[in-house]
Nucleic acid binder design. Structure first.
Length: 110
DNA sequence: TCTATGACTCCGG
DNA sequence: CCCGGAGCCATAG
């Protein structure tokens, strides 16, 4: 076991830190990790997070606030359903008032 | 070792 | 934000 977390483990930690009713983006997480990795790796890490039900992957969306990864959930409607249950309004797979709902780890965890 | 892939993002038009 | 193209890099086979 390494003392320092792997890339996807860091992503998992960030995802767990996202407050209820808030969302973040792949790019924000990638940037928080030092821009050393591209946003695609964050998405890949979330794919690994799929095995861990404690990771709120539904709170991670792309930079436009669109639920790009909804098809990766058990049900296509599960992702938006979870977000709606947390008080987030979603129209046409896109988060409304995304600029308000957005939670930036670079600002909150700094 | 190399190739393909992807839940992304930036850039120009 | 629509469209096409390029960059990005860990993981799988």
């Amino acid at each position: 076991m390494k003392d320092e977390l792997n890339f996807y483990e860091k992503v998992h930690e960030i995802a767990k830190l996202v407050p209820v009713g808030r969302v973040t983006t792949y790019g924000a997480i990638a940037k928080f990790l030092g821009t050393a990795s591209s946003a695609r790796m964050v998405g890949w890490a979330m794919n690994a997070a799929h095995a861990d039900s404690s990771i709120p992957a539904h709170r991670v969306v792309n930079r436009l606030g669109i639920l790009t990864g909804k098809h990766h959930f058990a049900a296509p409607t599960l992702m938006e359903d979870l977000l709606v249950s947390e008080g987030i309004e979603i129209i046409d797979n896109q988060i409304q008032d995304f600029n308000i709902k957005f939670w930036d780890p670079n600002l909150e965890l700094k």
